[in-house]
Computed example of a mutant assay.
Amino acid sequence: MHLDEGRRAAEAGDWVAAGHAFVRAAMEGSAEGAELATLVTVDLVPLADGGSAEAAALLSGIYLEYFDESALSDAVRYARAAAGAGLPAGQRTYGYMLLEGIGVEEDRDRAAELFRAAADAGDAYACLNLAQLVDDPDESQRLLEAATRAGIDAAGALLADRLSALDRDEEALRWYLWAAERGHTGAMNAAACWYRDGFGTEPDPVQAVRWFLVMLAHGDGDGVHEAIDLAKSGALDAGQVREAGRLAGDPGTAEALISTVWGGADTDRA
């Protein structure tokens, strides 16, 4: 969808819209999207040099994400220009460079100022970044909640961490699940472990194995051994593993787990 959107924008000569669409495709794992994002920089440069802050911010992000270090000085230059023009995306990008010392001298205070300006303008990723810098826990939580309203899964996972530290485990689990359902593998692992151990809920081995299996489907195999150990412990039977696989949308891996634990015996009880 994003690739088609980008191509239509490119055909219309709207290079900024095309670049944004290609970047969105790349963020969803499209190698073609990443390639097209790099190619569109040729058409973005004249726009950025002509004073388009939006083109400059987009160009900086593409250089930073998809080019090697030879493009870093240009990434800094365009990010600084976009931030100086007051564009929230530019403020956030340049703030990130300052925070991490990427191509510039590290300046945490200036980064926080830029994140705050962008967050006040409604930039959700700036809210996420600023939430990790402020000292006030209530403000941090408000910023994270603002980021979650934009669907940022990392914000939900971080919010869950903060709530867990306050022993608000039921709320924390809800946010881990929210982030897990949006593809955050760290939140998947947390949800699986909390269901296994009964944090924020009663122990539920089916849900635990479900999220361990979803992690695997997302390319993270860290929970596989925990799922096997849980099945071997007698906490659930083969039928429950199959139910976990159904909930995870991965019945094949559930059958493989059953074979590993019970030697392929066609039984619902080990």
Rank of each mutant, 00 (worst) to 15 (best):
G6N: 08
E11R: 15
G13Q: 11
G13C: 10
W15M: 02
A17L: 10
F22L: 05
F22D: 07
M27E: 15
E28N: 04
S30K: 11
S30A: 06
A31C: 09
A34K: 12
E35I: 00
V40M: 06
V40D: 03
V42E: 15
A48F: 06
Y63N: 11
D68Y: 09
E69C: 12
L72K: 10
A75H: 09
V76L: 04
V76T: 11
A82P: 01
A85V: 07
L98W: 04
E105I: 06
L114K: 01
R142S: 06
R149M: 03
R149A: 13
A154Y: 13
A157I: 00
L159K: 13
L166N: 05
W175I: 02
G183H: 08
G198W: 09
G200H: 01
T201W: 04
P205M: 07
A208R: 06
V209C: 11
R210M: 11
M215L: 13
V224E: 14
E226N: 09
E226S: 00
L230P: 07
Q240T: 02
R246H: 12
P251N: 00
G252T: 14
T253R: 11
T253H: 15
E255A: 09
L257T: 03
W262Y: 12
G264I: 12
G264Y: 15
D266S: 15
T267I: 10
